[in-house]
């Protein structure tokens, strides 16, 4: 299991809440392209088994392998947010970043031939649109450490009071 060991926030999915409706993909693709098209979404739902549903998007790894892999230095990581930026003038769609990503979170746009990576809608006031739209509140913008804190608290409650 690859880990990102990141200090940065990313859009995390709670698979116990996710129902696989794919609204996140509709809204992401519309936000980025003006069209509804799950092929162009930067967040992808995964239905690995009939009852195992989650979604994957950029994990904002520290020392991100995609940035290291890029042979043209087209990718860079924001030191504050950890968001990966793609320099369109340098990217030639070679897809080395796609291969380097342990999470399958990067895709190449077949028309523009540019790498596409979740940017957490950093230019929008109300933040990631997928998080805003998720009808089951399965998505949240969080860090691995925040998730761990929540998990510990949930466990503590369950051990004392019992499962909710």
């Amino acid at each position: 299991m690859p880990t990102s060991t990141s200090k940065y926030r990313y859009v995390a999915n709670d698979p116990t809440k996710c129902v696989g409706c794919q609204f996140c993909e509709y809204i992401c693709s519309y936000t980025k392209t003006g069209e509804f098209n799950t092929y162009r979404s930067r967040i992808r739902t995964v239905r690995a088994e009939e009852i195992l549903i989650t979604s994957i998007t950029c994990r904002t790894c520290e020392d991100a392998p995609c940035v290291i892999a890029c042979p043209r230095d087209a990718l860079s990581q924001d030191p504050v947010t950890g968001i990966i930026h793609v320099d369109a003038s340098r990217c030639d769609g070679c897809a080395w970043c796609v291969e380097a990503c342990d999470f399958g979170a990067i895709s190449i746009n077949p028309e523009t031939k540019l790498a596409e990576i979740c940017d957490q809608c950093e230019d929008l006031e109300d933040g990631p649109q997928c998080v805003k739209w998720c009808p089951k509140e399965a998505l949240s913008l969080t860090t691995p450490d925040q998730r761990a804190q929540r998990a510990r608290r949930k466990l503590a409650v369950e051990e004392v009071i019992g499962p909710r």
Partner: peptide
């Protein structure tokens, strides 16, 4: 019951696996 899942573009999710 093990999981509730949704159809395409459905915010309700009624299928009780």
């Amino acid at each position: 019951h093990v999981k509730t899942i949704a159809c395409a573009q459905c915010p309700i999710a009624c299928e009780q696996m």
